[in-house]
């Protein structure tokens, strides 16, 4: 914790709950994954929960969040239910994308998830389009672009930053920087510094993306400015990816210290130290979430598969 946090108990517990939901759902996916009940590539968010929780707790259902391939964390934080998520991973007709999307293509427009994309970078532009729509309609929703460090190498990122800044669009750019493009470290894929690049176009803030309270505070300030008509903002969240790029196995690049870098432990330590979390509350939250995951998996496993007739043009 590099700065003092002012947070009430309710907010603190909600952030904890969101991060635990992402963590526990991800760990369950990892545990089940070798059994092939989920026939879809998964890009897990373990270790990156603070970015999803910290940013999405400021977002409303009307705000449009466009994700890349690492979807589960921010989608859950934005409001996607565990049932439609697991049913989608199980390839069932009750999945959020009716079995057509899989892990990388999640859809829940009622919660401001108009879709996610597995081509790195491109969905940044869609969030800018949402911002343009809000501006043209004089509506107060915000477009949120969610992408990793490697996406800043794509031309579409530059084009999107430029257009959002030119038209002063209500767009929040969230760079979830886990330091790796697949197994390639940032030093091998980017000659630029992400903050310097973004600052050419718009006010940019860097935060410790493993510190949910810092992320929550920075995202709040950025979104307040955007909603006040201040144009786009860029949030650079430095975080750590605990798992391999894809799949259920831990990352073997040797860069993660799970005690030092755990966003959940960090928040719990802070909440206990501040008297906002007591006794077995954390255990109780974890158990509640386990039951919700059990329910979601039972729902998914009992749901029908989509029928091949749906493939007709």
């Amino acid at each position: 914790m590099t700065r003092p946090h002012t947070i009430n108990r309710e907010r603190g517990l909600r952030l904890l709950r969101t991060m635990r939901t992402i963590r526990q759902a991800s760990e369950r996916i990892a545990a089940l994954y070798p059994s092939n009940v989920m026939e879809t590539p998964v890009h897990l968010c373990i270790g990156q929960e603070a970015v999803a929780a910290g940013v999405c707790h400021h977002l409303r259902d009307e705000d449009k969040l466009f994700l890349g391939h690492r979807t589960h964390g921010p989608a859950l934080a934005k409001g996607l239910g565990l049932r439609p998520l697991f049913a989608e991973l199980y390839g069932r007709s009750t999945g959020c994308s009716r079995g057509f999307g899989g892990s990388m293509h999640l859809f829940d427009p009622a919660h401001g998830l108009p879709g996610s994309s597995a081509i790195v970078g491109g969905s940044i532009a869609l969030a800018v389009g949402a911002g343009l729509s809000a501006q043209l309609q004089r509506a107060d929703f915000v477009g949120v672009a969610w992408f990793g460090d490697a996406a800043t190498n794509a031309g579409v990122c530059y084009e999107s930053l430029n257009f959002a800044a030119l038209r002063k669009l209500p767009v929040l750019f969230v760079c979830e920087d886990n330091g790796y493009s697949n197994v390639m470290p940032k030093s091998a894929h980017s000659a630029h510094d992400i903050e310097s690049l973004a600052k050419v176009f718009m006010p940019t803030v860097a935060v410790d993306g493993t510190d949910v309270l810092a992320t929550f505070a920075a995202a709040g300030e950025a979104l307040t400015a955007i909603r006040a008509g201040g144009g786009p903002r860029f949030l650079h969240c430095k975080t750590k990816r605990w798992m391999k790029h894809q799949g259920h196995e831990p990352c073997d690049l040797g860069v993660v210290d799970r005690d030092r870098d755990c966003p959940i432990q960090k928040l719990e330590t802070f909440l206990r130290g501040s008297g906002l979390l007591q006794g077995a509350e954390s255990t109780q939250i974890a158990q509640d979430i386990e039951r919700e995951i059990d329910d979601a998996i039972a729902f998914a496993a009992a749901s029908p598969f989509p029928t091949p007739e749906l493939l007709e043009a």
Partner: peptide, 9 residues
């Protein structure tokens, strides 16, 4: 992408 995002919004 901007046009698509606007169409989805």
């Amino acid at each position: 992408g901007v046009a698509l995002g606007a169409a989805l919004s």
